[in-house]
Nucleic acid binder design. Structure first.
Length: 314
DNA sequence: AACCAGGCTGCGC
DNA sequence: GCGCAGCATGGT
């Protein structure tokens, strides 16, 4: 499937601007999205972010850029009617968690001797979400037990083979494949892309569950209770505690969905000398208790800490 | 070249 | 319920 967009000169239409809340840094957010991995679901260049999505079921290509006190959103392909504008605005604000007041979290960090550098060094970094539950589940299954460089390669192969592509001004943008598309595949279709037997099986199984409406965002969100949501996910093959918690954290920002055992999290806890050994689970739980309500953000900021601050070289 | 990767399942106890 | 082998393959 391919869509080609006519490369009109000056075809970009400004759809809207979105006012930046306090403690919001587009630059910090871009740093996270562009931290050295090859993500095929958006493109960043010249401090601008371009992405291809389905809005209200219709494909659009849009670009976000920094406009001082606000973000500017331009339309590059497709159309957005007046009544769809709020949908796009909500999509972007949810993606960057722009409705949240971070000051209580920063107050907690400031009280912590080992982490009190974070509010300044990472100021305005938001917990950037994966806006689609199916994509989030597939992505976390792909990423299980392999390094991220390889995981992004696997994702790209899947998306390029089975997703919808759109070429605009010499760059190709992609939609993540639909559950209906992935459910139609067999394990043999994914083996040449270097998916393991089990990863292939899990992905197809999850796609089936979505296509048959046995699992959906709405279904999960309706549960409210964290344990119930976790169990609803773990019931599916290929989803364990880590995956369930990672996905709940990245799609819904469920604060107590801590991906315990995550190697990145453990590494960060070690470098901050919060733990000495990776098996000190009680110590980790005690540590997280100090951040009640902000656990997901804490994990995100600890991941952020694994790389140098974006402003360091400036 | 060994050891590690943003783990999970299935088995034996 | 808990521990552990096996998985499967690229990165460093």
């Amino acid at each position: 499937m391919a869509i080609s967009a006519a490369p009109y000169i000056c075809s970009m239409k400004e759809l809207m601007t979105i006012e930046k809340p306090a403690l919001f840094s587009f630059r910090e957010c871009l740093w996270f999205l562009d931290r050295g991995y090859d993500d095929c679901l958006f493109r960043i260049h010249d401090q601008q972010l371009t992405r291809f999505i389905l809005l209200d079921g219709k494909p659009i290509l849009f670009r976000i850029s920094d406009a001082g006190n606000s973000l500017a959103v331009h339309l590059l392909h497709g159309s957005v009617s007046d009544h769809q504008l709020p949908l796009l605005r909500n999509h972007i604000m949810d993606w960057f968690d722009m409705n949240k007041d971070l000051s209580p979290f920063y107050a907690l960090l400031q009280r912590d001797k080992k982490l009190q550098y974070m509010p300044k060094d990472f100021e305005g970094l938001r917990l950037i979400s994966i806006t689609d539950l199916f994509e989030a589940l597939c992505w976390s299954i792909i990423g299980q037990q392999i390094n991220l460089t390889f995981a992004y390669k696997l994702k790209r192969r899947l998306v390029e083979a089975f997703g919808t592509a759109l070429t605009y001004e010499d760059h190709t943008y992609h939609l993540f494949p639909s559950p209906e598309k992935l459910r139609s595949l067999s394990v043999e279709d994914l083996r040449p892309l270097q998916y393991s037997q089990s990863k292939a099986k899990y992905l197809i199984g999850i796609a089936q569950a979505f296509a048959e409406k046995k699992l959906s965002y709405e279904m999960l969100a309706a549960l409210k209770d964290f344990n119930a949501m976790q169990q609803a996910l773990i019931a599916h093959k290929g989803i364990g505690v880590w995956t369930a918690n990672y996905v709940l954290m990245k799609t819904m920002r469920v604060p107590n969905a801590i991906p315990y055992g995550d190697v990145g999290l453990l590494k960060a806890l070690e470098t901050h000398e919060i733990i000495k050994e990776r098996n000190e689970t009680e110590k980790i739980e005690r540590f997280f208790k100090k951040y009640k309500g902000w656990e997901a953000y804490l994990v995100f900021y600890l991941w952020r800490s694994l790389a140098p601050p974006v402003f360091q070289t400036k």
